[in-house]
Design a protein around this nucleic acid. Structure first.
Length: 427
RNA sequence: GUGGGCGUAGCUCAGCAGGUUAGAGCGCCAGGUUGUGGCCCUGGAGGUCGGGGGUUCAAGUCCCCUCGCUCACCCCA
């Protein structure tokens, strides 16, 4: 098969996108199920919102000066002339949905979504990746910050991950940050000639963005920069202290990182990130989040505080691979029906058993017994059910365990019970 | 956006210094076993050697262009 994109070859998934097929997809199903159960256990309900939004939702929410909006967002004009965008992250959409429907506060939601960013793909980085996340709106209580961070930490441990670390910071609020930004910008201007070209121009538009830069020249400057955590106001100081105390009480280790400002402009106060220690630094970010107490206002709604996080599914599965945890184990079939007559027996028996709550596949095309048994073996079914002319005439089914055990003949109405018992026995 | 590596069967790859109809293993299909999977044996299907152009008597092999994949930088999940 041609791997080229030239004439004559069949279509491929677009660059940076990928298919997740069985059996690998079994892992995704479990991943999402574990997350959903955890979210429900803390009072979070599913929020399913469109992946496509008016571009302003993200431009205003995430920030015009952010990398994601500035050079990565999929944005286009549709047939009606509207400026639309494919969601590059989950939070802005959920807050938009909150503002539109105004559920009673506090409001807690979880989500599963693809996220689109136009970048050059590499290991663990895609143009369409997938995230699960939660958002909680309507309270400034720092214990909510603790709950949210605990949920992320709990999720990782439920997957069996152990080698990861939490970084945390507070980046202040509308009361203390403006003065800090003035001081920061002044400091950065004083050392502007030492900064990388790309970030020198950001000093006045968005000085905190420079903390994200990994180039050594910028890092040297930002390491010695004034720290937000040391300029917090009388409201932010106790908030952050309460968050740290809560994490400590829960036994969650958090490393303070004064450069942790996150890539989206909507964050206030608490910001945090989880990184795997089992992967290369280029793709070790498992997830992150923080408070966004101003986001609802930026999107045109009433002041509504909020906090949440997003977790990258592909990244976390890579970390699981690196740690050898959370294996994929597809749910096995209870039975595979083999019909040696005209096919009507497989048609009717398989549907009868499925209706009774069993997982059943069957052979098609009237293939030989040997071929159908081979297919039954490959299907992973616990048992093969054989109906040939002899069984049909006698009203029975030959049942053959495929993982050890003796073959026997059962009356047709005994088969479902026998399969249920077989399921109870083993995996 | 910038740079490196790589494109031969569904998958993993071999093809020595350019030389007849391009190979292996795995997988798939069929038969050996007229109704019994896994092991074994035999056979079969499956490839415009990513695409285009060039050099040559001759190109999977050499050259150019192009597309794609991949890894890294940046940023992030």
């Amino acid at each position: 098969m041609s791997r080229g994109g030239s004439t004559g070859s069949s279509p491929r998934a677009l660059r940076g996108t990928h298919d997740v097929l069985w059996p690998e997809s079994a892992r995704w199903e479990r991943f999402v199920a574990v997350f959903a159960d955890l979210a429900h256990s803390a009072g979070y309900g599913l929020a399913e919102t469109p992946v496509i939004e008016d571009a302003s939702v993200f431009r205003r929410g995430i920030g015009e000066a952010s990398e994601v909006v500035g050079k990565e967002m999929y944005e286009f004009v549709d047939r009606d002339g509207a400026r639309l965008a494919l969601r590059p992250e989950g939070t802005a959409s959920v807050v938009r949905a909150y503002l539109q429907h105004r559920p009673v506060l506090p409001w807690k939601a979880w989500y599963l979504t693809p996220a689109f960013r136009h970048e050059r793909p590499q290991a663990g980085r895609y143009r369409q990746h997938h995230q699960v996340g939660i958002e909680a709106l309507g309270t400034a209580d720092p214990d909510l910050d603790v709950e949210v961070i605990w949920l992320a930490d709990r999720f990782f441990s439920l997957l069996g991950l152990a080698d990861y670390r939490l970084s945390i910071n507070s980046i202040g609020d509308e009361r203390c940050r403006p003065a800090y930004l003035v001081e920061l910008a002044a400091y950065l201007r004083s050392r502007a000639d030492e900064l990388c070209d790309e970030h020198r121009g950001r000093i006045d538009t968005n000085p905190m963005r420079l903390f994200d830069c990994k180039r050594p020249e910028c890092r040297r400057v930002t390491e010695e920069a004034p720290r937000m955590a040391e300029h917090l106001c009388a409201d932010c100081v106790p908030h952050f202290a309460r968050v740290l105390a809560g994490l400590d009480a829960l036994g969650i280790e958090a490393g303070l990182d004064h450069r942790l400002v996150r890539g989206f402009d909507y964050y206030t106060r608490t910001t945090f990130e989880f990184a795997s220690g089992a992967m290369e630094a280029a793709q070790n970010g498992l997830g992150g989040g923080g408070r966004y107490d101003r986001l609802a206002e930026v999107l045109g709604g009433p002041a509504t505080r909020g906090i949440g996080f997003g977790i990258g599914i592909e990244r976390v599965l890579l970390a699981c691979d690196a740690e050898g945890c959370f294996p994929a184990d597809p749910t096995p079939l209870d039975a595979y029906v083999i019909d040696l007559t005209d096919g009507a027996q497989a048609r009717d028996l398989s549907i009868e058993l499925r209706t009774a709550g069993l997982a059943v596949d069957r052979g098609f095309d009237r293939r030989s017994l040997k071929a159908q048994l081979g297919a039954a073996d490959r299907s992973g079914a616990r048992a093969a059910l054989i109906v040939g002319d002899q069984e049909l005439a006698a009203g029975v089914v030959t049942v053959r365990p495929l993982r050890g055990g003796d073959q026997r003949t059962l009356a047709r109405d005994e088969v479902a019970g026998w399969l249920a018992a077989l399921r109870e026995e083993g995996p």
